[in-house]
Design a protein around this nucleic acid. Sequence first.
RNA 1: GCCCUGGUAGUGUAGUGGCCUAUCAUGAAGCCCUGUCGAGGCUUCGACACGGAUUCAAAUUCCGUCCAGGGCGCCA
Length: 607
Amino acid sequence: MRRTNTCGELRAEDIGKQVCLQGWVRFSRDHGGVAFIDLADRYGITQIVFDPEDLPKGTDVNAMADTMKTFTRESVVSIVGTVRKRVEGTDDARNPTGEVEVLITEAELLNKSAAPPFEIGDQKEGVLPNEDTRMKYRYLDLRRTEMIQAMEFRSKFLHLARQYLEQNSFLEIETPILGRSTPEGARDYVVPSRVHPGTFYALPQSPQLFKQMLMVGSMDRYYQVARCFRDEDSRKDRQPEFTQLDMEMSFVDMADIQNMIEGLLSFVWKGLYGKELETPFPRIAYRDAMERFGSDKPDMRYGLEFVKLTDVVKDVPYQIFQRILAEGGIVAGINLGDGSAKVGRNEVDRYIHYAKNKAKLGGLTWMRCENGVLTSNITKYFTPEILENIKQAMNVKEGDLIFLIAGPWKATYEGGGVLRRKIAEDLGLVPDDVFQFFWMVDCPMFEVDPVSGKYDAFHHPFVLPLNDINDDYVAGACFDICLNGNELGSGSLRIHNADLQRAVLEKLGVPDETIEKEFGWFIQALGYGAPPHGGIAMGVDRLIAILLNKETIRDVIAFPKNKRAVSLLDNSPEKIDDSKLEELQILSLATGDLDLESLEDIDSDEQ
RNA sequence: GCCCUGGUAGUGUAGUGGCCUAUCAUGAAGCCCUGUCGAGGCUUCGACACGGAUUCAAAUUCCGUCCAGGGCGCCA
């Protein structure tokens, strides 16, 4: 018999119906006569009752009992029966199907299950198995309600996004997975070519150049749920392969792109939560974000903003600050406000330690307002007037604790941002039910490496500069979308002029030869009437993880890699047969079979 | 490449030099039980990641390796 209903479907109005349910035996309770089975599938759990004294006439009771014995945990079974109201007082209000149960009349084992290595079911906090066990048996882990919900949510999100984009004339176009390696950016995953021995494709780090080619090709509006690959070390929000919602549009300005994303997210929000998402999102300039929150992706769900004190303390006798200011550094302060009382002297020392070791700050100065004046171990190096000015500037009230950071602009604010987040977490200031989107705007085009003096692209080399690239400061037509202290994605207008593209690559120190070899085809395409265009890509894994309050993106990816880029389910990566390597004309240095000495005559000059 | 935390039955844990023949829960196997719902009761099974060192004595201390997670670097 075919399944007539899912395990999450039956309600009181179905009482009396003959149904066939198929699913997994989650829990069973045998009372010696009557027995209960919680039959589960993706949609829910329905209670099945087996009562040997309540079977249809002519049923072989012993055969049935034998079948029931085979219904072990996680076996897959098919049952036929009658929906009936539960015995008075045995309803289960926690379960949507809890008013009814199905009285078995026929039962069949579809597939047995080995004893599962861990208990499936709605686990309490903290009793989940280790992540490696979950990954090894991911197909079992996926049966958990939490994982099912994550997969449903993700699917629904992407469906709504596609719906919105289709309504707005976007075309979903697939770009190649096998492409060419580019010199800049992350390490590539590489695929050897059999047809052209010694050459390699690279998996895309993003479809950047292809989507720009689509604009040159008049596609006008493109999107893709694009898999991207970067061979870099993992974090809880980063793994080797990830998914971007990638878009590109022609004849637009930055506001058009931002409006489109706000429209998209509002539409998705409505579909997911039935609520309006507040738009437009706030915008904050890069420099303001750094100076107020110490981050280019600040968590703005809470305050704890930095106040710039460089001018206030410029005449302070305190030598450390004087030296820093003389070197062009900054001084800034953060006021713990109402949380100050929770931070005693020992905690202050712990923050000083944290600042030096984790936040990479040179040091951390503290002061507390007692009896109307700022006091601490170093206030003797400050004049009363300067202390009063600090108080004013930082709006210090009696009892408030303030921390002062000092040093070079970028490193100090970044360190301050790390400290700010730590303080907010310690003081319990981070709400977990607020989703604060914003745009980080007014970004620089380049960053100068403080050590080498080399120019780096702030976003990437295809961003449109907004002024002459030889000016002291070059603004880039780029922006980030952030959510709760995470960068979700970045967008920009792109260079559509071949000469300008070449000049930017030169400015970034890419040798002419490399430009020609690696980007020649791309620059050439820009020369054939590339329209002004721009776009954005959002990290789907991150966004879903944040919306679902997950600690790691691994909890919203069906088959993730672990920290060391291993898939514990299929044990990849793995060695391949010598015969395959031979066909690809590849020798491995990693196996240890090769004697490097004997390879001397192989030309090692080439990379 | 580096730093930090951890690794005890299938799973989750307790155990900081001798009270360890290693705790508890869950699970599995068997038995009992006719209204449970992560059913209950009884019995049984099952573990100190690996290698070395210190010691009369090591799950416990030390060294190395492997494995897992978090972070730095890296991620145009």
